[in-house]
Amino acid sequence: MLPVLTRNSITNVCKGLRRFSSALPKSDTEVSKLKTEKLKREILEFRHAYPEFLPDPKIEFRNKIREKLERNDMVARRTQVDIPEFYVGSILAVTSSDRHSGGKSNRFVGICIYRGGCGLRAEFILRNVIDHQGIEVLYQMYDPSLQKVEVLRLEKRLDDKLYYLRDALPEYSTFDPNMEAELMPEGAPVPVNPIKVKLKPRPWLERWERQNLQGVQDLELPEKFYIKAAQVATPWEKYDLMKEYMRTIPVEEQTEIFSEVQSKLQSLEIDRKKLKRKRVIVKPTKLA
C-alpha cells in the first residue's frame, strides 16, 4: 500500500531532495523524483473514478470541515457497499431494497445518462426501455438501501449528459435486463463508444440543436433553427478564465483531498479486485 501523502509532506520530500541532491548520486534523486511524480499522478487519477469527493463547484457552498466530515461518511458507506468506477454511458445494474415492499429488492438495469452532485448528494440516473415504456430511475449514490451496484459494460459516450436519449428512437436506450457483465482486462483505458444516436422528429423535450451534441446524427431541421442556434451560442465561454477558475479545483487541492482518503479507498479497491478474481474463478462456464 502507498503511504499517505499530504501536500506538505510532498513539498517536504521535494525540498529534501533538492537539499541532498549534491550528496546523492544523481540517478537516485531522479528515480525518487519520478516516483513522487508517479504517485501524484496516481492520486490525481482518483478524480475520474470518484468525482463526488471533490468540493462543490459553487465556491460559496464550500467549507473545509464540512467536506472532511462528508468524505469520512462517504468512505464509511463505501466499506459497506461496493460502488465501482463508472461513467455517463456505462451500463449499470442497481439492486436496492424497496421500502414499499418489505423483504423484497429491486434490480434495475439501464444506461447511466447523468451523474452529478457532490459529496453525499451524489446521484445518477439510469434509463432503460421496458415493455415499450421508457423508464428512468434516479439513485442517490450513498443511499443505505442500495445493496449492490454492478457495472455491466464500462464505457464512455461522446457527451457529458445523455438526456437526448429521451427523444431518441427507443432502441438506443433498450438494454437486456438479464445482461451479463462484460469483463475488461485490468488497467485498460475506458473505451469511448462513438455511437451516433438518431433522434425522433420534433417536438422534443429540449432544443437539442443548441447544445452542440456530439453523439447525435444529423437533426434534419430547417435552416432557421441552426441560424437561431448560432445567434444564442456562447462560444467565448470556454475562454472565460474566471468561470474556469470557479468551476475547477486546483491540482494541489485535489491531491490534498485524495491523499486524505487514498489509503482507505485503495484498500477498498484491493478488496474489490480480490472479490472479482474470486468471481471469475467460481463462475461456471455455460456448455452448449
Binding site: 461518511d73 462517504m74 464509511a76 458507506r77 466499506t79 459497506q80 457497499v81 431494497s97 424497496d98 421500502r99 415492499s101 418489505g102 423483504g103 423484497k104 429488492s105 450513498y142 443505505p144 438501501s145 442500495l146 445493496q147
Partner: peptide, 14 residues
C-alpha cells in the same frame, strides 16, 4: 439515524 458504517438497510416483510 442510520450510521454510514452500518450494513445496508433491508426492509422487513410483513
Amino acid at each position: 439515524v442510520h450510521v454510514f458504517s452500518d450494513p445496508t438497510i433491508f426492509f422487513k416483510g410483513e
